[in-house]
Design a protein around this nucleic acid. Structure first.
Lengths: 216, 216
DNA sequence: TAGATTGTTAATCGATTAACAATC
DNA sequence: TAGATTGTTAATCGATTAACAATC
């Protein structure tokens, strides 16, 4: 049963499959072929079949895939029905938005604690969740054992904070602070989110794209 | 002078090079070899040289790269000193954070207008910038000619809004609404940002990672 | 000059696409 | 049964790595 390693490219596509299939299911669509799905998602049918077969034969020859079943399978693979205990540190503009905007339940996570260093922020609450002071982080972690931490703190504070959290048992970081987080220990997972990098990809494209309208 | 096409993989790495080089420069570091940079960034030296050579010979044999010069070259390639006229639509939690948190000037953009559909939000201002009602979008675009739009609206509103904006001359979208935006016209650029996809990558990893501590 | 490190070509590796037999 | 569409193998393509001559 030694599952062979799934390639990172496939893994990165899974959430997108899950999203599209969820929407199809909501629309009441029962079955879909790899060809139809490929047109919808802008991939090739071949790639979809290849990707899905990394995890098992979810389809049926001559029929295609059952939307609901496939969606649930992929959800299972991603672990969306788990409740990964998650904390968020840093409730500035971005932390506030990340705390409120993301559907944690839908991603297999449960937000169990908010923390900020600023004593004027700590003590308040956000959507009914109290914001704790970072001084209480160690005690909280010992008691609640979060395994995932979302960092929305300034770049300067992130590395030391992450180090502390690893010592407290945190095994995964969703890092919104500027500057990449990296651990030698492959047991610590990191997703560095760099919004500016994504925006710069657009400005690069604009520079090379022929202006659609060069009149005036 | 027909520049040969640069591969998407290289382009996606450019902002990260730019970021690391900027930090090195701030630290006062004058030169760096591909080997040193590779260790810092977690890449191979070979890849760095390969990537940079897509754009020209920025280094010097036996010496390495001049940090400041290289940083400026890459900034040039990305267009960071331009002022792409940019608007943002949808000032909910996320829109608010995206408007405030991102360094537009540092990304070659200039935020020239904020819009929201809600009449209680429109009329207010954010960091001194007035929030306009979406009804005034067409007039604004005719006058101000934005070329980039940031969408922080609900998924249901995004496609129609994007269509309208294209008709008004917008050529690039930074899309934070759920659901992918896609245009047949290759002249319209889209960056779909899916925060949940990134989080799901972590939960997937947690499921496969051996628990670091399986005591208690 | 000798040492270092690039620019660049060739080799390897991985990911995507095409093709088709299996089968519902 | 015939038609459709998968699962899977083989072919292609692209991206990464290794190697080394060029050169500062």
């Amino acid at each position: 049963m030694a599952k062979q390693e799934i390639s990172p490219s496939v893994i990165r596509r899974l959430p997108r499959y899950y999203r599209f299939l969820g929407e199809l299911r909501e629309k009441g669509i029962v079955r879909i072929s790899s060809k139809e799905l490929s047109q919808l998602m802008g991939l090739t049918a071949s790639q979809i079949r290849q990707d899905l077969n990394c995890f098992g034969g979810f389809g049926q020859q001559g029929y295609g895939y059952n939307v609901r079943a496939l969606c649930e399978e992929i959800g299972q693979i991603l672990g969306v029905s788990l409740h990964r205990r998650t904390i968020l540190i840093g409730l500035g503009n971005l932390g506030h938005a990340i705390a409120s905007h993301v559907s944690y339940a839908g991603c297999g996570c449960e937000l169990i604690g908010l923390f900020d260093e600023n004593p004027f922020v700590a003590g308040r609450d956000l959507n009914g969740m109290p914001i704790h002071h970072t001084d209480t982080l160690a005690g909280f972690c010992h008691q609640e054992q979060p395994e995932l931490a979302i960092l929305c703190v300034p770049e300067s504070a992130a590395p030391a904070l992450a180090q502390t959290l690893v010592a407290l048992g945190v095994r995964a970081f969703w890092n919104f602070s500027q500057g990449d987080l990296r651990f030698d220990d492959p047991g610590i997972l990191v997703e560095n989110v760099h919004l500016a990098d994504s925006l710069l990809t657009l400005t690069y494209g604009l520079l090379r794209q022929p202006e659609s309208e060069s009149d005036s």
